[in-house]
Design a protein around this nucleic acid. Sequence first.
DNA 1: TGAATATATCGACACTTGTCAATCTCTTAA
DNA 2: TTAAGAGATTGACAAGTGTCGATATATTCA
Lengths: 87, 87
Amino acid sequence: MLAVRFKALADPNRLRILSIVSSSPEAETCVCDLSEPLKLGQPTVSHHLKILVEAGLLNREKRGVWAYYSLVPGALDSLAATLVSKG
Amino acid sequence: MLAVRFKALADPNRLRILSIVSSSPEAETCVCDLSEPLKLGQPTVSHHLKILVEAGLLNREKRGVWAYYSLVPGALDSLAATLVSKG
DNA sequence: TGAATATATCGACACTTGTCAATCTCTTAA
DNA sequence: TTAAGAGATTGACAAGTGTCGATATATTCA
């Protein structure tokens, strides 16, 4: 549902996660890179990441012990397109 | 704040309000036009409209006894632009 | 195998949100 | 001035959300 994706964006910390992920080298980030700049505990960061993944905005790839998150290509653009078409 | 605007979009009924408003003749709607299609009580519709107005997405204009709501020109587009620039 | 480490999940808590019924406010008409 | 009607506000309540501490899972290394 469309509202689910907007709900995923409706939190300042999750918007910041998207910014950090997209601007990081290789455009991917692990949980450990997020906990400190967000000033949130590790379980909370995991929780936000899960919401973004389930909304189809982030990909999760596990390599070894680490989990790397990256933007789903085109996801934000298609969401933006639904906004423009409404106006 | 950016999250406030996405929060305004993070509800199915509010997305439907935007659709109805933008597609109605003159692109404006009064509360009485919304209550029935949304199957919501009048106070609930007023509540959702207030959230959309405070998010800067809808204009409210009172003419006589009725209140007419219309899209704020460019608001959805500029919000869409913030999404595209993140990717 | 066992220890160490990164991440996920669980349980709990305060806070927020969507909804409704009741009430209030404001405008028009008599 | 009073009555009627549109819409806003208030109060209440169930459901959802963000956060944390504790625990579980999974992977690497000795």
